[in-house]
Design a protein around this nucleic acid. Structure first.
Length: 564
RNA sequence: AGCCCCGUGGUGUAGCGGUUAUCACUUCGGACUCUGAAUCCGAUAACCCCAGUUCGAUUCUGGGCGGGGCUGCCA
């Protein structure tokens, strides 16, 4: 095991334990090989990230390699768009398949040859039954199936028919190639499963070269074997498929058609609270325009999370904490959020911006005067440098930071009270201006020139420090305030999951930011002090129209106190 | 219904014959603070049930019960 990665003091999950044993026993007599096998029929989401991280992670830890292989055996749903987005996402997560980019469709010819051998060995036959008949004759879980009348066709006839299937002599759905296993098996998958079906659908890679396509069960295991995969890691729903995986493999092994003997191991997939994960439902959100696309920042897709501003390192550390097991699980979204905050706290420059501006006029500050005040970019990491922020007579603070009639625990600005403006001065509220509806338009304050930089020479303390921006120098930008997409922990417990959509999952405001924000480049991340982490949108932001996505708020203890 | 899998605090996750049952997140306190952030400290809280094996079972065996998956010419 790679000593730098070996988690010697940590406990290993059951898959790593198995592999550790296999390595110790030199079971494979060669390097460990895994693969990430997406079907290019949708965008990757954080559930896939678990599989990517496991497969690539395990390979790295055991000095092995991990392939990227597309399981593209159903041309009706697959496309190049998905192939490309998947590669971008895997790279973004931090993994590299080097030159090992494979497609099951590249194995079609090989798979066909294997099938011919199985026919010759009397292990597969052409069945002329219709879809309905096959279904009927398969029986039920408590009743054995009926053997197909075509089950005992001669090898010659099967060979001839299979070849003609390939040549396109038969109608779609008129015949299939089935494995001859056991029609009375309690495992329904073993009752002579379909290996090939006729489908006159052009494939996004092989075009119209093929009119017959191999099924998943037949394809996947053989692709593993062809590539030399040692450990074929997949999710729990394939557990009942394992006997079939092994059957194809063992038949071909005994016919000397295979060199390698991969093994399938299943683990439980990731579920997240307040999130739906199935491709079908995500597609529905996109199609019904509930979100702006697969990469909408509220989506659990990797492209959505990326656009939202989640760092890949945060996703990896989240996955570390989630672990690998066979239990059904439902992870708290707050765990992911905590990993995101942890990562962003270390890496982001602090900056000041006001989301809901309230005008402040400093009565004793000279009109027209502008001071440049120094502010560190990170309170705990001086290596991240500092910048200058302009200060002037007219400023904006956050509406939430002023209350005319404050409750007992509120210690921000209110009439007569003194607070600090971050990295600037102490100010004291001396009056306010309201409009005819009674809404506060301006807060009038005085400042103490002695407190420049934010310290009082006489040592007097204030209870609060507020963020602010100078009115005339502020940069206007659009801020998209995102929140969780669903209101229920489990959106699916409602019959219609769309009914649990959070109507306030997106709030768009015009914010005012300090001048250093001008020209912020797409994808760059900041902490807006006291508010949260924001990321320049990679799609809609431009130098003229800055757009910030709120990745996540800061933990907000005050909002809890307020509620209670 | 059949087959397969799983069952440790609220959520994940370690431990696999003898432990004050681990760690993280959450929740609730407190300390500190030029972000009511971060950080630090503390608290609450768990072995599905019943038998059996054993001096001793969370750990082993059997049976229940509970949960999930599969039963597609999807993957």
């Amino acid at each position: 095991m790679n000593p730098s990665k070996a988690k010697q003091n940590e406990s290993l999950d059951f898959i790593r334990k198995i592999i550790t044993e296999d390595v110790k026993n030199n079971k494979y007599n060669r390097q460990i090989m895994t693969r990430f096998p997406p079907e290019p029929n949708g965008y990757l989401h954080i559930g896939h990230a678990k599989s990517i991280y496991l497969n690539f992670g395990v390979a790295e830890e055991f000095n092995g390699i991990c392939n990227l292989r597309y399981d593209d055996t159903d041309p009706e749903k697959e496309s190049m768009e998905y192939v490309e987005s998947i590669q971008e996402d895997v790279r973004w997560l931090g993994f590299d398949w080097e030159d090992r980019l494979y497609f099951a469709s590249d194995y079609f010819e090989q798979l066909y040859k294997f099938a011919v051998e199985l026919i010759k060995a009397g292990k597969a036959y052409i069945c002329d039954l219709s879809v309905e008949e096959i279904k009927e004759q398969r029986g039920t879980s408590d009743k054995p199936g009926i053997e197909s009348p075509f089950r005992n066709r001669s090898v010659e006839e099967n060979l001839d028919l299979f070849e003609r299937m390939r040549k396109g002599e038969f109608k779609d759905g008129s015949r299939v190639l089935r494995a001859k296993i056991d029609m009375s098996s309690p495992n329904m998958l073993i009752r002579d499963p379909i290996m090939y079906r006729i489908k006159r659908v052009p494939h996004y890679r092989t075009g119209d070269e093929w009119v017959i396509y191999p099924s998943y069960d037949y394809t996947h295991g053989q692709s593993d074997a062809i590539e030399g995969i040692t450990h074929s890691l997949c999710s729990l729903e394939f557990e009942t498929h394992r006997p079939l995986y092994n059957w194809y493999r063992d038949q071909l092994l005994s016919l000397n058609m295979l060199k390698y003997c991969p093994e399938q191991i299943e683990f439980s997939r990731l579920n997240l609270t307040y999130t739906v994960m199935s491709k079908r439902r995500l597609l529905e959100l996109v199609k019904k325009r509930i979100v702006s696309g697969w990469d909408d920042p509220r989506m659990p897709t990797l492209s959505g999370l990326r656009r939202r501003g989640f760092p890949p390192a945060a996703i990896r550390s989240f996955l570390d904490k989630v672990g690998i097991s066979k239990r059904e699980n439902y992870i708290d979204l707050s765990l992911l959020e905590s990993c995101v905050r942890e990562e962003l706290d270390k890496k982001c420059n602090r900056v000041m911006a006001v989301l809901r501006p309230l005008k402040v006029i400093i009565q004793n500050y000279p009109e027209g005067k502008i001071e440049e005040l120094e502010a560190p970019n990170h309170p705990k990491d001086s290596s991240m440098g500092s910048r200058k922020i302009p200060f002037s007579r007219t400023l904006y603070i956050e509406q939430d930071d002023f209350l005319e009639d404050p409750p007992r625990k509120f210690y921000r600005l209110s009439p007569g009270r003194e607070v600090r403006l971050r990295y600037a001065y102490y100010i004291k509220c001396v009056g306010l201006v309201k409009d005819e509806t009674g809404e506060i338009k301006e807060v009038h304050v005085t400042y103490d020139p002695e407190t420049k930089g934010g310290f009082a020479p006489d040592g007097r303390k204030v209870k609060a420090t507020l963020h602010w921006v100078a009115a005339d120098q502020a940069v206007r930008a659009e801020a998209r305030l995102y929140d969780r997409l669903f209101l229920k922990e489990n959106p699916l417990e409602d019959a219609d999951f769309l009914k649990t959509i959070n109507p306030q999952s997106l709030d768009v405001v015009t914010c005012l930011g300090e001048p250093s924000l001008a020209g912020a480049s797409p994808g760059s991340r900041y902490q807006f002090e006291r508010l949260g982490y924001f990321c320049v949108d990679s799609v809609d932001s431009s130098p003229e129209n800055l757009v910030f996505n709120r990745t996540i708020t800061l933990r907000d203890t005050w909002s809890r106190i307020k509620k209670s």
